[in-house]
Write a protein that binds this DNA or RNA. Structure first.
Length: 800
RNA sequence: GCGCCCGUAGCUCAGCUGGAUAGAGCGUCAGACUACGAAUCUGCAGGUCGGGGGUUCGAAUCCCUCCGGGCGCACCA
């Protein structure tokens, strides 16, 4: 195939003067990034290794039939690049312009420095081109390029070995700050699969952005406020003597609170007074918090002073609750007429053209997609504006603080299991005070207006409600306040809200509000410094939405706890490990060697502790496989599509799954270890792919040829290396689309390529030099696979 | 009713800033463990890219429209 091209090139060289393009090109306008954009991968390697569709060049000023154009360009490449002797590189500005690259240069005075610069660039391009490309060809509308495969492959392998776990890292987002708001569970509600999606997507995005050079700030915005706390507090006080297992409260507070919550709802169906009490208790709570100047101590969840259990369990708070219970009832009774009025008003509004589902079927949701089972959306929470009665009551506050603390503690435990961390825990409770001021300012500036006693900001479609008719704030107003707080603190360039797609309206309203604030910038000039940030936020916010998980309902009693979910996967992995034939041999080797996380204490291993060490070792692997399966399952498809939940899919470890990727890594490790031992190489694998320790083979890497076109496995090796070379682009792509699944797909392809290679080409019993070079190749594959898994937060296993 | 998202092989999904013969996995069927780990690999079969228009040299991809599914549409979060 090469000879044809050389032939045609030789012909075209003779009439090079006849080659000219319809328009002048100014090379200076074509930057590296611009060219990079034009380069595509052909669908089949037979077309070439890279291609540029000539119709893309129309944007750069070329005209004419794409097929003719591609032929002309290929001719040009042969005349001016490929067939040009090395010693005849461009060396002056005239040569440069003679190349029809910039005819205007003749008429304008040539800027010497610029010209020299261009010559340098030109020579660099030529040098690089000739070094890595062997031929080009026009086929249809495409210009296909063929790389020097051997050189290319060796270059990429050496590059990966040199950069190690920084291979693919880039500076796309250098100097920019991105805030990622994710996970954000509702306190006092269990951590379910709905939260897992946000958690896993957010965590992955954080790692991806970090890898792209952004400064990333991970924030967990806790739903630590709202009616549900009134409900819990009410239930806790009311059901005190009603079979509540208080030891469970201490041992597994989340499940305890969840049971309380469920019990509240089943009881309140027959006893609406409970709802009234809950609203009242929440109102007291809210007022207590707003009344506190510095709530930082209140929100401090780091301290471990949970002795307060005893106070509560021993009755102090109970007594308080009971004392106030009567008062609550009295307040609730007073409120009935107001409540009826609100209901009536709401029904009137319904008649105005909006069509709603039956109210009775409505369910409320927390911010991050888990369904709540409230049925009181049609009932105003406003009961009474008299607050003097509650000023000295810390009881609700006390319980709230405890529930909050316990919940956060539990969440952290779970985050730890799946290796997720946050830079900050924030809560809605922090924002309500500012939100109140904010509403006033928006009213003052006439950006907001009153409507049916509430405060709204008019929008093209649904008006945005920012305060209830009783003056209290809402989710939306607290989000505005939170964004301001964050901007003040971080001056972020970008903020991502990783929240389910069902909240699209909420976020489009939020973003619209900031757009309106920007349009009204002038009105903020006289405000406090703090509110002067308001107009600057527009355009920085992004809703990273994701589809719902279908078929895994969180309705009453049906909720799947994340931990149970992971345990299910773990059990299956455990079963597989124990029935696997490999189990015995692996364990005997590994447990005797170095159990990864367990039994480090049993240094002098007796037979008995060997067994327990082995069990712990296997247990740890099973857990990581389970986690890998669960996490990858959430990251392998595009965010936006709804996930049809199916236990069989999640618990599958074969095919396009997390465990398949983990297995591929383990297999490489095992292979390298085996060869290393067999051939008595002294390769320290650990040193090869972490950047801390300089590797002893990097010096080699510069000169070493890792592969040659004559190798029997070269075709397969090259294919894999080419895939490795795409890693950085994939990461940028994942970042720019906020789409971790791009990495998932990439890794699956890479693993498939590797496994195919593994199956088809055996390395044992081959020449030592060859085997050594293949180990280097395998390490480069391993590095990329592991980097990718890290970006997805999928645990990496040395063995499995 | 209005808005947003989704519709590609039996199932689950890639491919979507328009570009060369639409790709995987699972499942089915046929093969491969006396060679480095079978959580693997090799192969067969399977598609009017929801339907219909339009733009274009060229559409799974962009526009319009219809159908089907999901979600949302002011005092919940």
């Amino acid at each position: 195939m090469g000879s044809d091209k050389v032939q045609s090139a030789a012909e075209s060289k003779e009439n090079k003067n006849s080659i000219h393009f319809n328009t002048n090109i100014d090379l200076s306008k074509i930057d590296a990034a611009g060219i990079e954009k034009l380069i595509k991968l052909p669908p089949d390697a037979s077309y070439g290794d890279y291609c540029i569709p000539s119709y893309y060049l129309k944007q750069s000023g070329f005209t004419g039939d794409p097929e003719v154009l591609s032929t002309k360009i290929v001719d040009f490449i042969y005349s001016y690049i490929i067939n040009l002797p090395d010693n005849n590189a461009y060396n002056n500005a005239d040569d440069y312009t003679d190349g029809n690259v910039n005819n205007n240069a003749h008429t304008n005075a040539v800027n010497n420095a610029e010209a020299i610069n261009k010559i340098t660039i030109c020579n660099d391009i030529l040098k690089n081109f000739k070094q890595y490309f062997v031929s080009a060809g026009a086929k249809g509308a495409y210009i296909n390029f063929y790389v020097n495969k051997q050189k290319f492959a060796n270059y990429i392998i050496a590059e990966i070995l040199a950069e190690k776990n920084n291979y693919g890292r880039n500076y796309f987002g250098k100097g920019k700050t991105v805030i990622i708001d994710f996970s954000s569970p509702n306190i006092a509600k269990p951590f379910g699969v709905g939260h897992l999606r946000s958690t896993v997507i957010g965590m992955s995005l954080a790692r991806i952005y970090d890898f792209c050079g952004y400064k990333t700030v991970k924030i967990n915005y806790l739903g630590d406020f709202g009616t549900q706390f009134g409900k819990l507090i009410t239930a806790f006080c009311r059901f005190k003597n009603d079979n509540l297992d208080l030891t469970e409260f201490k041992n597994d507070p989340i499940k305890f609170l969840y049971k309380l919550y469920v019990k509240f709802h089943s009881e309140s169906e027959n006893n609406p007074e409970l709802d009234d009490e809950a609203r009242l208790r929440f109102k007291k709570l809210e007022q207590s918090i707003i009344g506190i100047d510095d709530i930082s101590e209140l929100l401090d969840d780091s301290a471990d002073d949970l002795d307060s259990y005893d106070n509560i369990i021993n009755g102090d708070v109970y007594n308080f609750c009971n004392d106030n219970f009567k008062e609550c009832n009295a307040e609730a009774r007073k409120s009935i007429s107001a409540k009826e009025y609100k209901e009536k008003e709401y029904k009137e509004y319904k008649k105005c053209g909006n069509i709603y589902k039956d109210i009775d079927e409505d369910e409320d949701e927390d911010r991050y997609g888990n369904r709540d089972i409230d049925k009181d959306r049609d009932i105003d929470k406003d009961i009474d504006k008299d607050k003097t009665a509650y000023q000295e009551i810390p009881g609700e506050l006390y319980l709230w603080k405890l529930f909050r603390k316990l919940s956060i503690r539990e969440f952290k435990r779970i985050y730890n299991i799946i290796n997720v961390s946050f830079d900050f825990y924030e809560g809605e409770s922090q924002a309500s005070k500012i939100a109140v001021n904010l509403v006033d300012i928006l009213l003052e500036t006439k950006i907001a207006e009153r409507s049916m006693d509430a405060v709204i900001i008019p929008m093209e479609k649904t008006p945005a409600l920012i305060a209830k008719s009783d003056g209290t704030t809402l989710y939306l107003s607290r989000d505005i306040a939170t964004a301001l707080l964050r901007f003040k603190k971080f001056k972020f360039d970008k903020m991502l809200y990783v929240v389910g797609s069902e909240q699209s309206l909420h976020f489009s309203q939020l973003f619209n509000i900031f757009k309106i604030l920007k349009e009204n910038k002038i009105k903020f000039d006289k405000q406090d410094l703090f509110f002067r940030y308001a107009p600057e936020i527009s355009g920085r916010l992004n809703h990273i939405k994701f589809g719902r998980i279908i078929g895994m309902s969180t309705r009453k009693g049906n909720l799947v706890f994340l931990e149970d979910y992971i345990n299910e996967a773990k059990e299956k992995a455990l079963l597989k490990l124990k029935t696997d034939k490999q189990y015995t041999s692996n364990v005997s080797i590994n447990a005797a060697g170095k159990p990864e996380s367990a039994a480090s204490s049993s240094v002098a291993a007796s037979a008995a502790s060997d067994i327990s060490a082995a069990d712990a070792y296997i247990d740890d692997i099973a857990l990581k496989v389970g986690i890998g399966a669960v996490i990858f399952n959430d990251l392998k498809t595009r965010r936006n599509v709804d996930v049809n939940f199916n236990w069989d899919n999640v618990l599958s470890f074969e095919g396009q799954t997390g465990p398949y990727l983990q297995y591929s890594v383990a297999r490489i490790n095992s292979l390298i270890e085996r060869l290393n031992k067999e051939y008595s190489f002294k390769i320290k694998i650990e040193n090869l792919y972490t950047s801390e320790t300089p590797s002893d083979i990097i010096a080699d890497a510069e000169e070493k040829e890792f592969c040659s076109v004559n190798d029997h496995d070269f075709k397969s090796v090259f294919e894999i290396v080419k895939h490795l070379s795409l890693f950085e682009d994939i990461i940028k792509d994942a970042a720019s689309h906020d789409e971790p699944s791009a990495i998932s797909s990439y890794l699956l392809d890479l693993a498939a390529l590797f496994n195919s290679y593994y199956q088809n080409y055996k390395l044992m019993n081959l020449e030592p030099d060859f085997v050594y070079s293949r180990i280097m190749f395998l390490i480069s594959v391993k590095i990329v696979l592991e980097s990718g898994l890290n970006l997805l937060s999928v645990p990496i296993l040395k063995k499995m």
